[in-house]
Design a protein around this nucleic acid. Structure first.
Length: 105
DNA sequence: CCTATGACGCCGG
DNA sequence: GCCGGCGCCATAG
């Protein structure tokens, strides 16, 4: 059982129009490090897995992973498609659109 | 086996 | 509130 599977499953559960953070995922799955999440998502793009990785941002709401998508603007475009406003690589009203995995409980 | 690196985050200055 | 340093864990070389 790899962390990737857990991370993929959780990321798939992020509601459309919402975003969450590496730290929250790391916390919820007790991974011990948020870096692992970033690494797993990086691989998922490469794997071509159908994961909404664009809904994962860093703790400040910045699109830190945009560089790993097809083009640097892909991540932002996908978010805006779902109604998430992005300005200067940051999620607008981050506090309002952030989703915490704990809400599953 | 050991070192460097990274889609991160907390703490102290 | 910004910045630098350090810890964190998995991988690649």
């Amino acid at each position: 059982m790899t962390h990737q599977e857990n991370i993929y499953d959780l990321v798939k559960l992020i509601p459309e129009g919402k975003v969450t953070t590496y730290g929250r995922i790391s916390d919820f799955l007790a991974l011990g490090s948020a870096r692992v999440v970033g690494w797993a998502l990086n691989q998922c793009n490469k794997n071509g897995a159908n994961i909404p990785a664009h809904r994962v941002v860093n703790r400040k709401g910045e699109l830190s992973g945009r560089g790993s998508f097809a083009t640097p603007s892909t991540m932002q475009e996908l978010l805006e498609q779902e109604g998430v406003e992005v300005l200067d690589n940051c999620v607008v009203n981050f506090d309002l659109v952030v989703w915490d995995p704990l809400e599953l409980l």
